[in-house]
Structure formats: C-alpha cells, structure tokens
Nucleic acid binder design. Structure first.
Lengths: 224, 224
DNA sequence: CCTTACTGTGAACAAATGGTGAAAACACAG
DNA sequence: CTGTGTTTTCACCATTTGTTCACAGTAAGG
C-alpha cells in the first residue's frame, strides 16, 4: 500500500520510511508541495503533508486534493503553529500530528486513519447478507427466505444500522442520531415502535439471527 | 453528545455553545468547580475545565475525575499560566488550550480529542477476557466457561469496572459515581446487593480470579 | 474471648423499562 | 383537496430491574 510523504526534511523521510516498510507499506517520498500533487497517482492510499514546504504549502496541497477526492490526509505541523493545526482540520484533513513526533506514532495514526476510512467505505457499499436475509440499502430492498419483504424507509435504515454491526448494542439515541439525524427532537420510544414492526415483518425462526433487546440499554442484531 | 463546559465566564459559554451546537454537540454549562463535579453524569462525553474558577479550581476537578475515570478532559488556561499548563497535562488532562482562543479552535480540539480517545476505547473495548470469563460491554454480554450469563446493565457495568482494573480496590462511592453517576443519592449498601448477585451468577471456582471484599474499603477484582 | 464495626443475604417493595395497539399527525401522489 | 401509506405519539399493562432494610454472619483489635 503506497503512502505519500511530503516533507522538505530528509530525516523525516528516512525515519518514517523504516517504520512504514516494516509494516508493509510502500512510502513515496517528495520534498515539496508541487511534487506532492504530481505524485498523486490513484494507487496512493494516504498522504502525509508537512505544512511548511517550499513551493506549495501543505495547506494548499490539502485544499487541492480535497477538490476532487476524499483521499485520507494527515497533516504535520511544527509546534507553535496552532493556527495551522486548526486550519488543517477544517480543510478536511483526517488527522494532524505535531512535530516532533515518534515515527511509531505516525505509523499508528496512519493505520488508524486507514481503518476509519475503509470502514466508512465498506458500510456505504454492498448489501448485507445473513442466513435467509438480505438488506440492500442501495435499492432499499429486504428479502427474507428469498421472498421480498415490503419495508418502509425507516425500517430498512434501522435494520441496516443494526445488522451492519452484529452484536453491538445501539441505544435508542444512537439510532435516532444516525437514522433520523442529530436534529430529531421526538421521543426515544418511537424507536420501539419501529423495532416492533421490523420484528413483525421479519420472522427469523430458525435462521440463526434476531433483534435482541438489551434491557436498559437498547437493541442489537445478534447472530448465533 | 454532551460536552460539559466549566467556566465562570458567561461569554465563554455563549461562544462555545453556538459552535458546539452547530456541530451537533450538546453543551452543559456550569460556572464553578463543585457544580462541574455534580454535573458529571455518565452521558457526558468530554469536559472542558477552566483552571481559575470559584469553589474548586479546574485542577482540583481534574484530579477528582481522574481518580475514577478516563473521561476526556481539556483544560483552559489564561495566558501566562504556563505552570498550570504543565500541571494540567501531568494531572492527566488530554489537551490544553490557552486563552484567548477562538471557539473554532476549541471545537476542533474537542473533536480531535474525542476521536483519539474513541479509537483508544475501541481497542480497549474489545471484550475483557479472563480465564473462563469474558465481559463485552459493546454487546453487553458476559460468558462463563463458554456459556452466556444473563446479567442486568448495572451488574455488567460494575463487573466491567472492577475487571478492567484487576487488583485495584474500588470504594462503594467510586462505584456509585462511575456506574450510577455523580448525582446518585441512595445508600452505598446498594452496591453490596449488586455484588452479591454478580457473585451468585459468576461461580469462579478454580478459574483463578474472584471478586474480593476489602474490609472497610470496598471491592476488587483479583486475578491470581 | 468480647466488643465493635463492617459485610452478606433474602425478601419485600419501588422504580424503570419495554411491548403493544390504536389514534393522531404527517407526507406525498394523484 | 383527497386518499393512501408512513411516522409519531401516547397510554396501558406486564415484566424486569433496582433499592431498601432487618438480621445474621464475619473480620479486626483489644
């Protein structure tokens, strides 16, 4: 996996290079902002941008990238560049690291950011499939034992959220926030009603999964 | 997501409130240290503490919190209080911000700290595992010798708190504060009853761990 | 031993939570 | 505007969970 490192300090490249290769990454080293932009082939998985660089600053590069892609970006800032730090995040960087840093820290953050962004992509995409049940958020369809089940949008969204993290308990508030949006003002008991209807439509008898209530906490989709 | 803001300056509350709400956070405003401690219910996700406050200083509040929890804390310090800055971080605060600050900066830092700590927790969150016992707070399940054990939320939370710090003694008050929330008014003996029930459900015979009573102090989860 | 303070326990009681059905409010297409 | 399907709210009841309390049991320290 290729990681683009843009920094004018050779020491940074050397230090990160050792640790990145040890973790199976393939560092691509550039020394200024313009080179960074040129080096951005589609096989780059993530890029680390120093803010202070000759040519184009890290901030400019970050802006440039964000115009066309969601490529994960980690900013490097020297101590004292407080302002830049914030700007970096506002520009859409995924993380920032303050110099001086330990190479291990950087690698840990890189892995964390990659994990995050990969998870996001996975959760957006494909249909969920369980024993006798499929949930496809793209076409808003649910099938049970091969037969299509007519579900309302809210029902599908709740089911999808629960089923994309089997075993994990979601509180009613978490469900409201994710499915309804943060500005929903209503009762948490609304969730109960939807769960009831989902259960009524989805007879999971003998299929090895079910929607469980965790008393005092919330609901979870459980697979045996 | 609730953010506790403890500062004696009303202007700070107003400024941060606007930006926090815009980002979907729910600010909880208190004006002195004692109020901060009282307001610390378990649904607070992070707290911002001014160092100079009437009643209890931010430093004292921070110390108090750190006795029983890893709640993310951001300290606010007036310019020139360099010493406090260091003390703040030594006390276990997660970040510090020097006044005067821009509200945007504070919000950016809050998000950064939350992301960091959430990631940590995710890696911690993976179930606690002991010989023959697993405790998974994410799915609210406990298993003993492979068999699931039905536990109530309070039972799991107490067990989890004890088991995440094996060997450390927790007083009944500390357990009440963390599991019930700082505003719980009832008897400390309530804890005894829950411990009794946990013990009844978790027969640890020959598994090398147990919940021990420390006479006159509290309880601990002990591993041989 | 003996006293004292603390803890374990069971049962009664109180509180909180969840399931449900029906009705009201709402959204949207015709 | 009307009718249909969806979403939300609400009140009821059943159930689970949490709390308290009195009393018995046990450790600590003289």
């Amino acid at each position: 996996m290729k990681i683009l490192i843009a920094d004018d300090d050779k020491v940074v490249h050397e230090a990160l290079g050792i640790y990145l290769r040890a973790e199976g990454f393939e560092p691509v080293n550039v020394y200024d902002g313009n080179a960074a932009i040129e080096a951005l082939t589609p096989d780059i998985a993530l890029c680390v941008l120093d803010i202070m660089m000759p040519g184009k600053s890290g901030i400019e590069v970050c802006k440039e990238i964000r115009k066309t892609s969601h490529l994960p970006i980690i900013m490097l800032t020297a101590k004292g560049e407080e302002v830049d730090r914030i700007i970096g995040l506002e520009l859409g960087a995924d993380d920032y690291i303050v110099k001086p840093f330990s190479p291990r820290e950087v690698v840990a953050r890189i892995k964390a950011v990659l994990r995050r962004t990969q998870e996001q992509q996975e959760s957006d995409n494909s249909a969920l499939v369980f024993n006798g049940l499929t949930i496809d958020l793209k076409s808003y369809t649910v099938t049970l034992r091969g037969e299509p089940v007519v579900c309302t949008p809210k029902e599908i969204e709740i089911l999808h959220m629960l089923a994309s993290n089997p075993g994990q308990v979601f509180t009613r508030e978490q469900l409201l926030n994710r499915v309804w949006g943060y500005d929903f003002a209503g009762e948490t008991r609304t969730v109960d009603t939807h769960i009831k209807r989902i259960r009524a439509k989805l007879d999971s008898e003998g299929l090895g999964w079910s929607i469980k209530t965790i008393y005092g906490v919330g609901y979870k989709f459980e697979v045996e």
